[in-house]
Nucleic acid binder design. Sequence first.
DNA 1: ACCTGAACACCGTTCAAGT
DNA 2: ACCTGAACACCGTTCAAGT
Lengths: 196, 196
Amino acid sequence: VRQRTEAPERRRGDLVDAALAIVADKGVTRLTVDEVVARAEVAKGTFYLYFRSKEQLITALQDRFVDDLTALQRAELDQIDAGDWLGRLLRWMESSLRGYLAHARLHDALFHHSQHGHEADPAVNSHAAVLVEILEAGTAAGDFALSTPRTAAVLLYNTMHGTAHYLVEQNEKNPDVVEAVIAESLDLCRRYVSGT
Amino acid sequence: VRQRTEAPERRRGDLVDAALAIVADKGVTRLTVDEVVARAEVAKGTFYLYFRSKEQLITALQDRFVDDLTALQRAELDQIDAGDWLGRLLRWMESSLRGYLAHARLHDALFHHSQHGHEADPAVNSHAAVLVEILEAGTAAGDFALSTPRTAAVLLYNTMHGTAHYLVEQNEKNPDVVEAVIAESLDLCRRYVSGT
DNA sequence: ACCTGAACACCGTTCAAGT
DNA sequence: ACCTGAACACCGTTCAAGT
Protein backbone atom coordinates (compact mmCIF):
# COMPACT_ATOMS: atom_id res chain seq x y z
CA VAL A 1 0.00 0.00 0.00
CA ARG A 2 1.48 3.26 -1.16
CA GLN A 3 1.48 6.09 1.34
CA ARG A 4 2.51 9.71 1.36
CA THR A 5 2.89 11.80 4.46
CA GLU A 6 2.31 15.53 4.17
CA ALA A 7 2.31 18.37 6.62
CA PRO A 8 -1.09 18.13 8.32
CA GLU A 9 -2.13 21.73 7.53
CA ARG A 10 -1.33 21.12 3.92
CA ARG A 11 -3.41 17.93 3.79
CA ARG A 12 -6.26 19.75 5.38
CA GLY A 13 -5.89 22.60 2.93
CA ASP A 14 -5.98 20.16 0.03
CA LEU A 15 -9.24 18.72 1.30
CA VAL A 16 -10.75 22.18 1.78
CA ASP A 17 -9.69 23.26 -1.70
CA ALA A 18 -11.14 20.13 -3.25
CA ALA A 19 -14.39 20.59 -1.34
CA LEU A 20 -14.70 24.25 -2.35
CA ALA A 21 -14.29 23.39 -6.01
CA ILE A 22 -16.94 20.70 -5.80
CA VAL A 23 -19.40 22.82 -3.82
CA ALA A 24 -19.03 25.68 -6.29
CA ASP A 25 -19.71 23.23 -9.08
CA LYS A 26 -22.63 21.21 -7.79
CA GLY A 27 -23.70 22.49 -4.40
CA VAL A 28 -23.52 21.20 -0.86
CA THR A 29 -26.09 18.44 -1.22
CA ARG A 30 -24.44 16.71 -4.13
CA LEU A 31 -20.95 16.90 -2.71
CA THR A 32 -19.74 13.46 -1.67
CA VAL A 33 -16.81 12.54 0.51
CA ASP A 34 -15.78 10.13 -2.23
CA GLU A 35 -15.38 12.97 -4.67
CA VAL A 36 -13.53 15.16 -2.19
CA VAL A 37 -10.93 12.51 -1.43
CA ALA A 38 -10.58 11.60 -5.10
CA ARG A 39 -9.88 15.20 -5.97
CA ALA A 40 -7.50 15.67 -3.05
CA GLU A 41 -5.86 12.34 -3.94
CA VAL A 42 -6.09 10.77 -0.52
CA ALA A 43 -7.83 7.69 0.82
CA LYS A 44 -11.37 7.94 2.09
CA GLY A 45 -10.36 7.31 5.68
CA THR A 46 -7.96 10.22 5.61
CA PHE A 47 -10.88 12.62 5.35
CA TYR A 48 -11.96 11.58 8.83
CA LEU A 49 -8.55 12.34 10.27
CA TYR A 50 -9.16 15.99 9.44
CA PHE A 51 -12.92 16.42 9.74
CA ARG A 52 -15.34 14.84 12.14
CA SER A 53 -18.03 14.60 9.46
CA LYS A 54 -19.17 15.92 6.13
CA GLU A 55 -21.36 18.34 8.02
CA GLN A 56 -18.43 19.78 9.92
CA LEU A 57 -16.56 20.32 6.67
CA ILE A 58 -19.48 22.32 5.28
CA THR A 59 -19.64 24.45 8.41
CA ALA A 60 -15.92 25.14 8.14
CA LEU A 61 -16.36 26.27 4.53
CA GLN A 62 -19.26 28.53 5.48
CA ASP A 63 -17.34 30.12 8.32
CA ARG A 64 -14.39 30.77 6.05
CA PHE A 65 -16.62 32.39 3.46
CA VAL A 66 -18.19 34.79 5.95
CA ASP A 67 -14.83 35.63 7.49
CA ASP A 68 -13.28 36.38 4.10
CA LEU A 69 -16.13 38.64 3.11
CA THR A 70 -16.05 40.47 6.42
CA ALA A 71 -12.33 41.11 6.11
CA LEU A 72 -12.82 42.61 2.65
CA GLN A 73 -15.57 44.79 3.93
CA ARG A 74 -13.69 46.10 6.92
CA ALA A 75 -11.03 47.35 4.53
CA GLU A 76 -13.67 49.21 2.56
CA LEU A 77 -15.22 50.71 5.64
CA ASP A 78 -11.86 52.03 6.77
CA GLN A 79 -11.84 54.34 3.76
CA ILE A 80 -14.77 56.31 5.18
CA ASP A 81 -13.99 59.37 7.28
CA ALA A 82 -14.06 58.67 10.98
CA GLY A 83 -17.19 60.19 12.43
CA ASP A 84 -19.27 59.88 9.26
CA TRP A 85 -21.58 57.26 10.66
CA LEU A 86 -24.29 57.55 8.07
CA GLY A 87 -21.63 57.17 5.42
CA ARG A 88 -20.37 54.04 7.11
CA LEU A 89 -23.85 52.60 7.41
CA LEU A 90 -24.62 53.21 3.75
CA ARG A 91 -21.27 51.77 2.76
CA TRP A 92 -21.90 48.71 4.91
CA MET A 93 -25.25 48.08 3.23
CA GLU A 94 -23.96 48.67 -0.28
CA SER A 95 -20.75 46.70 -0.02
CA SER A 96 -22.58 43.82 1.65
CA LEU A 97 -25.09 43.59 -1.14
CA ARG A 98 -22.41 43.90 -3.82
CA GLY A 99 -20.17 41.44 -2.02
CA TYR A 100 -22.87 38.81 -1.90
CA LEU A 101 -23.73 39.38 -5.53
CA ALA A 102 -20.11 39.16 -6.59
CA HIS A 103 -19.73 35.82 -4.84
CA ALA A 104 -23.25 34.74 -5.57
CA ARG A 105 -22.43 31.34 -7.01
CA LEU A 106 -20.34 30.18 -4.10
CA HIS A 107 -22.60 31.79 -1.55
CA ASP A 108 -25.63 30.07 -2.94
CA ALA A 109 -23.85 26.77 -3.26
CA LEU A 110 -22.70 26.98 0.34
CA PHE A 111 -25.79 28.21 2.09
CA HIS A 112 -28.73 27.41 -0.10
CA HIS A 113 -29.39 23.77 0.70
CA SER A 114 -32.81 23.26 -0.75
CA GLN A 115 -34.02 24.75 -3.99
CA HIS A 116 -37.11 26.12 -2.31
CA GLY A 117 -35.39 29.10 -0.75
CA HIS A 118 -38.31 30.83 0.87
CA GLU A 119 -38.12 33.32 -1.91
CA ALA A 120 -39.12 36.90 -1.37
CA ASP A 121 -40.54 36.86 -4.86
CA PRO A 122 -44.21 37.84 -4.65
CA ALA A 123 -44.84 35.85 -7.82
CA VAL A 124 -44.28 32.60 -5.95
CA ASN A 125 -44.70 33.61 -2.32
CA SER A 126 -48.28 34.44 -1.48
CA HIS A 127 -47.17 35.83 1.84
CA ALA A 128 -44.98 38.43 0.15
CA ALA A 129 -47.76 39.09 -2.35
CA VAL A 130 -49.98 40.40 0.43
CA LEU A 131 -47.32 42.91 1.32
CA VAL A 132 -47.03 44.10 -2.28
CA GLU A 133 -50.76 44.74 -2.36
CA ILE A 134 -50.58 46.87 0.76
CA LEU A 135 -47.59 48.89 -0.34
CA GLU A 136 -48.94 49.52 -3.83
CA ALA A 137 -52.37 50.54 -2.59
CA GLY A 138 -50.96 52.74 0.15
CA THR A 139 -48.63 54.45 -2.29
CA ALA A 140 -51.43 54.99 -4.79
CA ALA A 141 -53.53 56.48 -2.00
CA GLY A 142 -50.71 58.86 -1.17
CA ASP A 143 -50.22 57.46 2.32
CA PHE A 144 -46.75 56.05 1.59
CA ALA A 145 -43.81 57.84 0.06
CA LEU A 146 -42.37 54.93 -1.91
CA SER A 147 -40.92 55.21 -5.38
CA THR A 148 -41.07 51.46 -6.09
CA PRO A 149 -43.52 49.61 -3.84
CA ARG A 150 -42.55 46.22 -5.25
CA THR A 151 -38.92 46.68 -4.33
CA ALA A 152 -39.92 48.07 -0.95
CA ALA A 153 -41.93 44.89 -0.43
CA VAL A 154 -38.86 42.74 -1.05
CA LEU A 155 -36.90 44.74 1.52
CA LEU A 156 -39.59 44.65 4.19
CA TYR A 157 -40.39 41.01 3.59
CA ASN A 158 -36.79 40.12 4.21
CA THR A 159 -36.63 42.32 7.27
CA MET A 160 -39.59 40.44 8.65
CA HIS A 161 -38.59 36.94 7.66
CA GLY A 162 -35.00 37.17 8.77
CA THR A 163 -35.96 38.77 12.04
CA ALA A 164 -38.56 36.14 12.79
CA HIS A 165 -36.02 33.48 12.05
CA TYR A 166 -33.53 35.21 14.31
CA LEU A 167 -35.97 35.25 17.21
CA VAL A 168 -36.73 31.59 16.75
CA GLU A 169 -33.07 30.72 16.49
CA GLN A 170 -32.23 32.57 19.69
CA ASN A 171 -35.00 30.57 21.28
CA GLU A 172 -36.05 33.82 22.82
CA LYS A 173 -38.40 33.18 25.72
CA ASN A 174 -38.28 36.59 27.31
CA PRO A 175 -41.47 38.38 26.25
CA ASP A 176 -39.86 41.77 26.82
CA VAL A 177 -37.20 41.06 24.24
CA VAL A 178 -39.72 39.73 21.75
CA GLU A 179 -41.94 42.76 22.22
CA ALA A 180 -39.01 45.13 21.86
CA VAL A 181 -37.99 43.55 18.56
CA ILE A 182 -41.55 43.70 17.27
CA ALA A 183 -41.89 47.32 18.31
CA GLU A 184 -38.63 48.19 16.58
CA SER A 185 -39.80 46.41 13.42
CA LEU A 186 -42.98 48.45 13.38
CA ASP A 187 -40.90 51.58 13.85
CA LEU A 188 -38.78 50.68 10.87
CA CYS A 189 -41.95 50.26 8.78
CA ARG A 190 -43.34 53.61 9.88
CA ARG A 191 -40.16 55.55 9.29
CA TYR A 192 -39.46 53.89 5.97
CA VAL A 193 -42.82 54.37 4.33
CA SER A 194 -43.27 57.91 5.61
CA GLY A 195 -40.18 59.15 3.75
CA THR A 196 -38.00 61.99 4.92
CA VAL B 1 -49.03 -10.71 0.95
CA ARG B 2 -51.67 -8.73 2.75
CA GLN B 3 -52.94 -5.63 0.99
CA ARG B 4 -55.35 -2.84 1.77
CA THR B 5 -56.70 -0.45 -0.81
CA GLU B 6 -57.68 3.02 0.35
CA ALA B 7 -58.97 6.08 -1.40
CA PRO B 8 -55.85 7.65 -2.93
CA GLU B 9 -56.34 11.08 -1.30
CA ARG B 10 -56.61 9.40 2.04
CA ARG B 11 -53.42 7.42 1.53
CA ARG B 12 -51.64 10.55 0.50
CA GLY B 13 -53.01 12.37 3.52
CA ASP B 14 -51.78 9.60 5.81
CA LEU B 15 -48.30 9.94 4.39
CA VAL B 16 -48.33 13.73 4.77
CA ASP B 17 -49.57 13.47 8.35
CA ALA B 18 -46.88 10.95 9.21
CA ALA B 19 -44.20 13.10 7.61
CA LEU B 20 -45.35 16.24 9.45
CA ALA B 21 -45.20 14.49 12.78
CA ILE B 22 -41.70 13.24 12.10
CA VAL B 23 -40.42 16.56 10.80
CA ALA B 24 -41.79 18.38 13.83
CA ASP B 25 -40.04 15.85 16.00
CA LYS B 26 -36.61 15.53 14.42
CA GLY B 27 -36.32 17.87 11.46
CA VAL B 28 -36.14 17.47 7.73
CA THR B 29 -32.67 15.98 7.57
CA ARG B 30 -33.33 13.12 9.93
CA LEU B 31 -36.68 12.20 8.43
CA THR B 32 -36.43 8.89 6.58
CA VAL B 33 -38.83 7.36 4.11
CA ASP B 34 -38.65 4.19 6.19
CA GLU B 35 -40.04 6.01 9.18
CA VAL B 36 -42.76 7.75 7.17
CA VAL B 37 -44.09 4.50 5.72
CA ALA B 38 -43.84 2.73 9.07
CA ARG B 39 -45.90 5.45 10.70
CA ALA B 40 -48.41 5.53 7.85
CA GLU B 41 -48.51 1.72 7.90
CA VAL B 42 -47.84 1.20 4.21
CA ALA B 43 -45.07 -0.52 2.30
CA LYS B 44 -42.02 1.43 1.28
CA GLY B 45 -42.84 1.28 -2.40
CA THR B 46 -46.23 2.87 -1.77
CA PHE B 47 -44.53 6.11 -0.85
CA TYR B 48 -43.29 6.43 -4.42
CA LEU B 49 -46.77 6.03 -5.81
CA TYR B 50 -47.67 9.32 -4.13
CA PHE B 51 -44.43 11.30 -4.16
CA ARG B 52 -41.72 11.45 -6.75
CA SER B 53 -39.02 11.70 -4.08
CA LYS B 54 -38.35 12.57 -0.47
CA GLU B 55 -37.41 16.04 -1.67
CA GLN B 56 -40.77 16.56 -3.33
CA LEU B 57 -42.52 15.54 -0.12
CA ILE B 58 -40.60 18.19 1.82
CA THR B 59 -41.47 20.85 -0.74
CA ALA B 60 -45.13 19.91 -0.49
CA LEU B 61 -44.99 20.26 3.31
CA GLN B 62 -43.29 23.65 3.04
CA ASP B 63 -45.82 24.95 0.54
CA ARG B 64 -48.68 23.85 2.76
CA PHE B 65 -47.13 25.60 5.76
CA VAL B 66 -46.77 28.91 3.94
CA ASP B 67 -50.26 28.68 2.48
CA ASP B 68 -51.81 27.97 5.87
CA LEU B 69 -50.05 30.89 7.49
CA THR B 70 -51.01 33.24 4.68
CA ALA B 71 -54.64 32.27 4.96
CA LEU B 72 -54.62 33.00 8.68
CA GLN B 73 -53.03 36.34 8.06
CA ARG B 74 -55.42 37.44 5.36
CA ALA B 75 -58.23 36.93 7.82
CA GLU B 76 -56.46 39.18 10.31
CA LEU B 77 -55.80 41.85 7.73
CA ASP B 78 -59.44 41.95 6.76
CA GLN B 79 -60.23 43.30 10.22
CA ILE B 80 -58.44 46.54 9.44
CA ASP B 81 -60.47 49.41 8.04
CA ALA B 82 -60.27 49.66 4.29
CA GLY B 83 -58.12 52.63 3.38
CA ASP B 84 -55.93 52.43 6.49
CA TRP B 85 -52.83 51.37 4.65
CA LEU B 86 -50.33 52.11 7.36
CA GLY B 87 -52.51 50.12 9.73
CA ARG B 88 -52.49 47.21 7.30
CA LEU B 89 -48.73 47.39 6.85
CA LEU B 90 -48.09 47.41 10.58
CA ARG B 91 -50.53 44.55 11.06
CA TRP B 92 -48.84 42.58 8.31
CA MET B 93 -45.46 42.99 9.95
CA GLU B 94 -46.69 42.19 13.42
CA SER B 95 -48.86 39.21 12.58
CA SER B 96 -46.11 37.77 10.39
CA LEU B 97 -43.59 37.94 13.18
CA ARG B 98 -46.03 36.53 15.71
CA GLY B 99 -47.20 33.86 13.30
CA TYR B 100 -43.69 32.63 12.72
CA LEU B 101 -42.96 32.65 16.43
CA ALA B 102 -46.12 30.75 17.23
CA HIS B 103 -45.22 28.06 14.74
CA ALA B 104 -41.54 28.30 15.39
CA ARG B 105 -40.87 24.64 15.97
CA LEU B 106 -42.47 23.42 12.78
CA HIS B 107 -41.18 26.34 10.78
CA ASP B 108 -37.65 25.71 11.87
CA ALA B 109 -37.95 21.99 11.36
CA LEU B 110 -39.26 22.52 7.85
CA PHE B 111 -37.01 25.25 6.57
CA HIS B 112 -33.91 25.23 8.65
CA HIS B 113 -31.88 22.43 7.09
CA SER B 114 -28.49 23.04 8.56
CA GLN B 115 -27.84 24.12 12.11
CA HIS B 116 -25.64 26.96 10.95
CA GLY B 117 -28.48 29.27 10.05
CA HIS B 118 -26.58 32.33 8.98
CA GLU B 119 -27.56 33.88 12.22
CA ALA B 120 -28.08 37.57 12.52
CA ASP B 121 -26.61 37.31 15.99
CA PRO B 122 -23.65 39.70 16.21
CA ALA B 123 -22.13 37.45 18.85
CA VAL B 124 -21.44 34.76 16.27
CA ASN B 125 -21.60 36.65 12.99
CA SER B 126 -18.70 39.02 12.55
CA HIS B 127 -20.43 40.56 9.58
CA ALA B 128 -23.38 41.60 11.69
CA ALA B 129 -21.00 42.73 14.43
CA VAL B 130 -19.59 45.42 12.14
CA LEU B 131 -23.09 46.79 11.71
CA VAL B 132 -23.65 46.90 15.45
CA GLU B 133 -20.49 48.94 15.88
CA ILE B 134 -21.65 51.48 13.31
CA LEU B 135 -25.15 51.83 14.71
CA GLU B 136 -23.99 52.13 18.29
CA ALA B 137 -21.33 54.70 17.51
CA GLY B 138 -23.64 56.69 15.26
CA THR B 139 -26.32 56.72 17.91
CA ALA B 140 -23.86 57.76 20.60
CA ALA B 141 -22.68 60.57 18.34
CA GLY B 142 -26.26 61.74 17.94
CA ASP B 143 -26.30 61.09 14.18
CA PHE B 144 -28.88 58.29 14.41
CA ALA B 145 -32.21 58.36 16.19
CA LEU B 146 -32.28 54.74 17.34
CA SER B 147 -33.53 53.61 20.71
CA THR B 148 -31.87 50.18 20.56
CA PRO B 149 -29.00 50.03 18.07
CA ARG B 150 -28.47 46.31 18.62
CA THR B 151 -32.02 45.49 17.66
CA ALA B 152 -31.81 47.89 14.74
CA ALA B 153 -28.73 45.98 13.59
CA VAL B 154 -30.65 42.72 13.56
CA LEU B 155 -33.36 44.29 11.41
CA LEU B 156 -30.99 45.89 8.93
CA TYR B 157 -28.77 42.85 8.74
CA ASN B 158 -31.75 40.76 7.76
CA THR B 159 -32.93 43.35 5.27
CA MET B 160 -29.53 43.18 3.64
CA HIS B 161 -29.01 39.46 3.76
CA GLY B 162 -32.44 38.49 2.55
CA THR B 163 -32.36 41.03 -0.22
CA ALA B 164 -28.95 39.90 -1.43
CA HIS B 165 -30.20 36.36 -1.44
CA TYR B 166 -33.27 37.42 -3.36
CA LEU B 167 -31.20 39.09 -6.06
CA VAL B 168 -29.02 36.04 -6.41
CA GLU B 169 -32.00 33.75 -6.53
CA GLN B 170 -33.68 35.76 -9.25
CA ASN B 171 -30.40 35.44 -11.12
CA GLU B 172 -30.83 39.10 -11.81
CA LYS B 173 -28.54 40.13 -14.66
CA ASN B 174 -30.11 43.48 -15.46
CA PRO B 175 -27.85 46.11 -13.86
CA ASP B 176 -30.70 48.60 -13.74
CA VAL B 177 -32.73 46.33 -11.51
CA VAL B 178 -29.77 45.59 -9.26
CA GLU B 179 -28.96 49.27 -8.92
CA ALA B 180 -32.58 50.12 -8.18
CA VAL B 181 -32.72 47.56 -5.37
CA ILE B 182 -29.46 48.81 -3.90
CA ALA B 183 -30.65 52.41 -4.07
CA GLU B 184 -33.88 51.49 -2.35
CA SER B 185 -31.96 49.65 0.37
CA LEU B 186 -29.87 52.73 1.03
CA ASP B 187 -33.03 54.79 1.18
CA LEU B 188 -34.46 52.46 3.77
CA CYS B 189 -31.31 52.88 5.87
CA ARG B 190 -31.43 56.65 5.63
CA ARG B 191 -35.08 56.95 6.48
CA TYR B 192 -34.89 54.44 9.30
CA VAL B 193 -31.93 55.86 11.18
CA SER B 194 -33.00 59.46 10.78
CA GLY B 195 -36.22 58.88 12.70
CA THR B 196 -39.43 60.79 12.13
C1' DA C 1 2.25 9.69 13.74
C1' DC C 2 -0.02 9.47 9.53
C1' DC C 3 -2.32 7.01 6.00
C1' DT C 4 -4.95 3.24 3.55
C1' DG C 5 -9.13 1.01 1.60
C1' DA C 6 -12.12 -2.75 2.49
C1' DA C 7 -16.12 -3.43 5.18
C1' DC C 8 -20.24 -1.80 7.36
C1' DA C 9 -24.54 0.55 8.02
C1' DC C 10 -28.03 3.29 6.43
C1' DC C 11 -31.32 4.96 3.37
C1' DG C 12 -33.47 6.64 -1.13
C1' DT C 13 -35.35 4.46 -5.18
C1' DT C 14 -36.92 0.76 -8.29
C1' DC C 15 -39.50 -3.11 -9.97
C1' DA C 16 -41.22 -7.76 -10.56
C1' DA C 17 -44.76 -9.96 -8.37
C1' DG C 18 -49.05 -9.99 -5.79
C1' DT C 19 -54.43 -8.91 -4.99
C1' DA D 1 -55.75 -0.02 -10.28
C1' DC D 2 -53.37 -0.22 -6.13
C1' DC D 3 -50.08 -2.20 -3.16
C1' DT D 4 -46.01 -5.02 -1.52
C1' DG D 5 -41.20 -5.71 0.07
C1' DA D 6 -36.98 -7.62 -1.51
C1' DA D 7 -33.18 -5.99 -4.11
C1' DC D 8 -30.22 -2.37 -5.68
C1' DA D 9 -27.27 1.59 -5.59
C1' DC D 10 -25.14 5.09 -3.23
C1' DC D 11 -22.68 7.19 0.30
C1' DG D 12 -21.19 8.54 5.17
C1' DT D 13 -18.37 6.46 8.68
C1' DT D 14 -15.30 3.12 10.98
C1' DC D 15 -11.30 0.35 11.87
C1' DA D 16 -7.78 -3.18 11.51
C1' DA D 17 -3.74 -3.20 9.06
C1' DG D 18 0.06 -0.87 6.75
C1' DT D 19 4.45 2.48 6.53
